[in-house]
Nucleic acid binder design. Sequence first.
DNA 1: AAGTGGTCTAGACCACTTT
DNA 2: AAGTGGTCTAGACCACTTG
Lengths: 261, 261
Amino acid sequence: MAKTGDRARGGTAPALGALDFALDRGSPVPLYYQLAQQLEAAIEHGVLAPGNLLGNEVDLSVRLGLSRPTVRQAIQSLVDKGLLVRRRGVGTQVVHSQVKRPLELSSLYDDLEAAGQGPTTQVVRNEVVPAPADVAAALGVAEGGEVILLERLRCTHGQPVALLCNYLPAGLLDLDSARLESTGLYRMMRAAGITLHSARQTVGARSATAEEATRLDEKEGAALLTMQRTAYDDTGRPVEYGTHIYRGSRYAFDFQLLVRP
Amino acid sequence: MAKTGDRARGGTAPALGALDFALDRGSPVPLYYQLAQQLEAAIEHGVLAPGNLLGNEVDLSVRLGLSRPTVRQAIQSLVDKGLLVRRRGVGTQVVHSQVKRPLELSSLYDDLEAAGQGPTTQVVRNEVVPAPADVAAALGVAEGGEVILLERLRCTHGQPVALLCNYLPAGLLDLDSARLESTGLYRMMRAAGITLHSARQTVGARSATAEEATRLDEKEGAALLTMQRTAYDDTGRPVEYGTHIYRGSRYAFDFQLLVRP
DNA sequence: AAGTGGTCTAGACCACTTT
DNA sequence: AAGTGGTCTAGACCACTTG
């Protein structure tokens, strides 16, 4: 941090002098993506500190033997991720710390994953049922049409945390209960070629009914965190609709919102 | 829907035949953006129905007198918005309906906006205070340093809905209480040149204390929806930290999550 | 085999910020 | 005036999907 180190550059290259990017043109992974990954790693490991300028795009492209658009594509992907900021006339710099790991869809993935060490998930129900009105509307199927009903109880440290009730279009997926408990719904969907793309969520709070209290080991009237979600794949087709109930005393959503420029 | 209509094209142009895009090269607004806006409008108004193919990029660029990268940039922006889907070897098509208006940051904007007709917001406190530990950590200022404390009561239909408690770095903004109630915090920040970029939120549920119940016109022990948020500007600097309490009986968050590709 | 999007190049000019 | 990112062009080749 004391010296510039590279005196031949005369100070115009702020922080990127010693960085060696290894680009493999033989690799099937795109050049812009290779660059983006290595830039991200450099930021992640603190080689590029918050506020550091990246050096202008033209220099970078010459140094790396890439065209400027390719370098721009790499940088843009990191700007989209919120790791870099571009300012016309100024340059590109690493964002001012904070907000390290986005998490973003963590709540969704957590809910659907069920894997991992800590939490366990027990499948309570897994059967084909006629679709109630709200489910039919959400999944875009006929009311009374076949849908899969999945009811799970999520526990951590041997304590119940959440009651997850999900509906999926019938025939979308083979849902083996045993695999569900060990693998998680999300990975099973992914393995079946379904790519989650977006989800619409409503999160609220209400008091527990007597039955809910019993199942969640809470007192009647305890505060519950409720979540209703419809998830869509990359074609916009609804693939999952769920109603979840979490114990307010033991669970909270934690996520990040990004403003799309 | 019965005829192809344009027999000269021989059926290779699926749905875009009659669309007239007006591109103004004299305008300061970028060409790719003009195109993206008009495509989005066409989708919004149903001119391009879900599932419709868009026609290949090369044809489009020729027809519009643009280069292919420019057309791609327009399309890509709509793909990022979740309005279009691209498949190699297949084409670009309008997403299968659903998920019309994203809302996305609506909760954040709602919380900070306060404008609009329905809800009213009353500023209860607006003063400079020494930063408590959690606020100092969130805003990246010294503990005990000066921060602005903003406490507001949100009402709809004459009924209290939420208690909003926000902290901002001192000197960031001139916060006139009267303007705050009519304009909203978000617009005041925007007017001051602060661009919101991302926010980290934690949403949970708990029972109301006696004091909270009184202020929100609820019963003690009623379910409350709680939200804690730190918002960052486009340089990653924290610009707002807040703790909000909503009546579970009268409020729910409604938002959309997007998976970043 | 044909058609599609995905990637990449080597330039160009402009708008903005800083000096 | 110099330097930066923002936009745009006119090509090229490749990978994938479909008939």
